[in-house]
């Protein structure tokens, strides 16, 4: 493991622990499970298993990443406009408000995943982490706006299945996120295969 890889892994682990802690103390257990464990921790594991040693080709990864990042930001705008923070606090024991949601997921955390776009373009290992947690987050987090949040709200507060903030834009970044996940897995397989073939060739030339 190179010095750059060690440093990036440490930064990624710190982001995972720090942001999960922050979510647990403010947003409650539901966003902690979805974002902290579902997106960040699973993303970290996927990154270590795929693009950690073999960063994905930026020409293949950047289109789905930028599309997902843009669609996610639109989704966050919808959530902010319709008080996602307050509604989440109503279905967990969290203390989130619209303002706290804005500072956490609207203005603070996007700095991390937008920086990921620069890292991907430079083929820096951090781009691998950012892409893995963003795509995992879309896969696991976005369907909850249709399948978990409105149903939980209905069970707690009564009434019928109804609109939950972020619902209309939730599944768009899921589509581009799936595209990105396939790119990461395919590229990693190809690069690992290529590296194994190179090793075999080298071993063959060294044998007398």
């Amino acid at each position: 493991m190179t010095r750059q890889e060690k440093l990036t892994l440490s930064v990624a682990a710190l982001i995972c622990i720090g942001f999960t802690q922050h979510l647990y103390h403010t947003a409650g257990w539901l966003p902690t499970i979805i974002i902290g464990f579902g997106a960040l921790t699973l993303g970290l594991v996927l990154w270590l298993k795929t693009s950690f040693y073999y960063p994905t080709d930026p020409n293949r990864l950047l289109p789905p990443y930028l599309l997902t990042a843009g669609l996610l930001m639109l989704h966050i705008a919808e959530e902010y406009a319709f008080d996602f923070g307050g509604r989440i606090a109503g279905i967990t024991e969290g203390i989130w408000s619209t303002e706290m949601f804005l500072w956490s997921l609207g203005l603070g955390f996007p700095l991390v995943w937008i920086s990921g776009g620069i890292a991907i373009a430079k083929r820096h290992p951090f781009g691998g982490f950012a892409s893995c947690f963003l795509f995992c987050g879309m896969l696991l987090g976005e369907p909850t706006h249709l399948l978990i949040f409105p149903i939980r709200e209905m069970l707690i507060h009564g009434g019928h299945y109804d609109y939950f903030p972020g619902m209309w834009t939730a599944l768009m970044p899921l589509v581009s996120g799936l595209w990105g996940l396939v790119v990461i897995v395919q590229d990693s397989r190809q690069q690992k295969l290529g590296a194994a073939t190179e090793n075999l060739k080298e071993a063959g030339t060294q044998t007398p």
Partner: peptide
């Protein structure tokens, strides 16, 4: 203030990011 942040920060950043995908092609 809420609408200003919604339009000029969150929505604008979303469109800039989608614009980056358009620049890529």
């Amino acid at each position: 203030s809420t609408n200003f942040t919604l339009y000029f920060t969150l929505t604008a950043v979303a469109f800039y990011l989608l614009g980056a995908a358009i620049i890529f092609y």
